[in-house]
């Protein structure tokens, strides 16, 4: 099977996103504590959402870097840890009401709209809020987004073989939470970039039958 492995730590927003009818054929939930080389060998990409357990990820970092070395893509959103990624994430207050009080001053000031992740997006669709910044990124990394202070929001590097892209945006968590209605735009771009398949157009819905399960995996 090809597709995207969503490394998750039992958080419900990750689960809601990956089990949504629109995305469930393209994402496979992989419980981080059960991650093995074999469980991701046939995948195109890995997605590591915000609210992940970075201590658990760090213990399995070799598996992730072997996946990258084989040419896979890895997407990291929200925070991260230098215990497994050669970069420094730093927390900042979250402003998720700017679009009410300062609609012309979004948290991201510069975006590389030539990158497939952002192609065709309106500025508002390319940033809803950020969870901190990167104060250090790997040598030679390309910066794709900065905030108004010039701090790094999104970057990517190919130094490990495949592409590692990290952002302090949190599209998977927020789309799973369902409180921001325009995230189909970003998440469809993200999915197409990660696995080469664009989800069917339309709004993500939730499958109520997927909730209250007695077994997983």
């Amino acid at each position: 099977m090809s597709g995207i492995g969503l490394l998750f730590n039992g958080v419900w927003s990750h689960y809601a996103f990956a089990t949504a009818p629109k995305y469930r054929g393209l994402y496979r939930l992989i419980y981080i504590h059960d991650l093995t080389r074999e469980s991701i060998a046939s995948l195109d990409a890995l997605a590591i959402p915000f609210q992940s357990n970075h201590e658990a990820i760090a213990r399995r970092r070799d598996i992730i870097y072997e996946f990258l070395a084989a040419g896979g893509k890895v997407f990291v959103e929200g925070d991260s840890s230098p215990a497994w990624i050669d970069a420094q994430w730093s927390d900042r207050p979250v402003n998720n009401w700017w679009w009410v009080t300062e609609p012309n001053n979004p948290p991201v000031a510069d975006t590389d709209y030539a990158h497939p992740l952002f192609q065709g997006l309106a500025p508002r669709h390319a940033c809803w809020h950020t969870h901190g910044v990167y104060t250090r990124v790997p040598e030679g990394a390309d910066v794709l987004q900065r905030n108004g202070d010039g701090e790094i929001i999104t970057w990517q590097t190919t130094r490990y073989g495949g592409t590692l892209l990290a952002t302090t945006l949190d599209p998977i968590v927020e789309h799973g939470v369902g409180q921001i209605t325009h995230l189909d735009n970003f998440c469809d771009n993200l999915t197409a970039w990660l696995c080469g398949v664009r989800p069917e157009p339309g709004t993500m819905t939730v499958d109520a039958d997927a909730f209250g399960i007695d077994r997983f995996g």
Binding site: A16, A208, F211, G212
Partner: peptide, 19 residues
């Protein structure tokens, strides 16, 4: 204080809905 999508809370079920 969370969404328990697995059935571990006795007697009660949480369901996500974005409609």
């Amino acid at each position: 204080f969370d969404g328990w999508f697995t059935n571990w809370v006795p007697g009660n079920r949480w369901i996500m809905d974005n409609s």
